[in-house]
């Protein structure tokens, strides 16, 4: 009586997975051929790689003065661009907040922010280098633009999320626009602003060690010329310094965030 019937396999192999795997494999092969990547070239490179590592270690700190100069310039760029960029972002963010401003103000401001965001800092840096020449100024301007692109947007979003009751309460007292911003808007978003600002300082510090590669001042320039002169042990010294300064920056910004919590 017991008819042993087999239940159908509940996992019909969906073709989507198989197709996905085939597409990725085919893409890898196509891209490898198209770009002339080959195992032989890769292996040859590995040989160079070990030679390079040989020359990179031990790191060479004998030209520490050069290193220090670059480092100081990087930090100057990071600090100035963060302060100026964040300061400008306060206003630009306010102008871009749709609950505080009419559309004819907020929309164009948003376009400006979007433009600042869309390009990689390095591309902005080369444009500034062409416009204002080599050196720290180009780096400064680049990172100000990058800060605005990133942080003005976050500021605007934070302002748009505030509770409007407090704004109305202060407005009801007949306060001016400035007082409304100072006493109703700012207290609500202050700690988040600090968080964003610290993040931006971190990110500007990272980027200030990089824009020098295209001539915009700072440690990146030192790094790039070390590469061009094949001073690989000096390269290692610079890289270690960069990593150390970034870790230090992360540590300090964490502390500041704690203080303003």
């Amino acid at each position: 009586m017991a008819v042993v019937k087999d239940y159908p396999n509940p996992f019909e192999r969906s073709p989507a997975n198989t197709i996905g795997v085939i597409v990725i494999a085919a893409y890898l092969i196509y891209a490898a051929i198209d770009m002339d990547l080959s195992l032989a070239r890769f292996l040859e490179g590995l040989g160079h790689g070990s030679a390079l590592l040989d020359r990179m270690f031990p790191p060479n700190f004998t030209r520490w003065e050069l290193l220090l100069d670059g480092l100081i310039e990087s930090m100057q760029i990071a600090i100035i661009s963060s302060v100026v960029g964040i300061f400008m972002s306060l206003f630009i963010g306010l102008f871009a907040a749709r609950n505080m401003m009419p559309a004819w103000v907020s929309s164009p401001t948003r376009v400006i922010i979007a433009l600042c965001r869309s390009f990689h800092p390095v591309i902005i840096a080369i444009l500034f280098v062409k416009a204002v020449g080599f050196g720290a100024l180009a780096g400064l301007l680049t990172l100000i633009v990058a800060s605005i692109g990133f942080i003005a947007k976050l500021f605007a979003e934070a302002i748009e999320e505030i509770s409007f009751k407090q704004v109305e309460a202060i407005r009801a007292t007949g306060a001016s626009f400035t007082s409304i911003v100072l006493f109703a808007v700012l207290p609500q978003v202050f700690s988040r602003f600090i968080g964003f600002s610290m993040y931006q300082l971190d990110s500007n510090l990272r980027n200030s060690t990089m824009v020098g590669i295209v001539g915009a001042g700072g440690l990146g320039g030192t790094l790039f010329s070390a590469f061009q002169r094949f001073d690989y042990d000096f390269v290692t010294a610079i890289l270690l310094t960069i990593i150390a300064i970034i870790l230090l920056g992360e540590f300090l910004s964490g502390k500041v965030r704690e203080i303003f919590q």
Binding site: V4, D6, Y7, N9, P10, F11
Partner: peptide
């Protein structure tokens, strides 16, 4: 690969 045996599938249902 979800290669469960037919017995397992029958038991499960």
């Amino acid at each position: 690969r979800r290669n469960y045996t037919q017995d397992d599938i029958n038991n499960a249902f």
